[in-house]
Design a protein around this nucleic acid. Structure first.
Lengths: 152, 152
DNA sequence: TTAGATGCAAATCATTTGCAATGAA
DNA sequence: TTCATTGCAAATGATTTGCATCTAA
């Protein structure tokens, strides 16, 4: 991502200053083109700026989240994943074996939201579908493992 | 829950012994009739058995999970919630303000699974929908707060 | 008797926070 | 100059683990 665009992003918000760390982190999040954890982001950032701290990564992830630039997701793990907020909402399909994360969309989620708003008088602000299973390749392989554990 | 039923549950598994702590924890999980966190479970357990340890709670939650008796859920928080595995799958609707958790069912989730299995050659083993928003009461109230933060 | 279970304290992992030093506007 | 931001280290909260002791089978 061009520096100019990052600046544009951040400049829209009053009182938020543009620092080298923020530009770096935003650039890396853009490059990740998908989901990245705080630790991965930190590791990548250190390669470019040896003195950046994990605290700065967390603080800025929190800031970007509050500014509505990124979203935070949990995929069963203890740690979170972060991704740029897309215009179009999408859902996640995760392989228990190889960890591949596939994004997909479905108009049915809108139907579900409507049903729930109707039935429970709820004002739904966020809808997430999380599907887990085995992808084609892992399903065929013999030596399946689930996040490091053998499942023979 | 009657002790006999707890024993029946645990006896089905070889090598798993029936301890007072396990009976207590299973009973409390049953009584909770919904979602309970490890900490809440521990607090309730201590009332009946002053010397039970948090480690025992976590170890047994892990065991029950492995035995397929309970399920682990994350609702955006850092900590997990545990619930008995129901025969019928159900989804969750959480109020950002008061924290109420509503369970609901929808046949549309099956449709989504079918679509995904078809489109991505995935073998889907688990499907979770998580909806978040404001319940009727909180939506009407003036002083809405989101998990402790004011949103005036 | 003996493998599995427990309690305790210490360890880990992800995330947050206090504080003094630094840097953007 | 001034207030936001950073790096560092220590704190926190959830969960796990090592170890000596206990207990169900």
């Amino acid at each position: 991502m061009k520096m100019r665009n990052v600046r544009k992003y951040l400049k829209e918000f009053n009182g938020v200053s543009i620092t080298a760390q923020r530009e770096l982190l935003m650039g890396l999040i853009h490059k990740s083109q998908g989901h990245i954890s705080a630790k991965e982001l930190y590791k990548n950032a250190v390669k470019k700026n040896g003195s950046i701290s994990l605290a700065t990564v967390y603080r800025n992830l929190k800031l970007f989240k509050e500014l509505g630039i990124i979203e935070e997701r949990r995929f069963g793990n203890l740690s979170c994943y972060y991704e740029l907020k897309h215009a179009n909402s999408h859902q996640h399909l995760v392989c228990k074996c190889c960890g591949t994360i596939i994004e997909f969309e479905t108009p049915l989620i809108q139907k579900i939201i409507e049903q729930v708003e109707e039935n429970y008088s709820f004002n739904v602000l966020k809808a997430e579908i999380y599907l887990e299973g085995f992808c084609k390749e892992c399903n065929n392989a013999d030596n399946n493992t689930v996040r490091g554990y053998s499942m023979s």
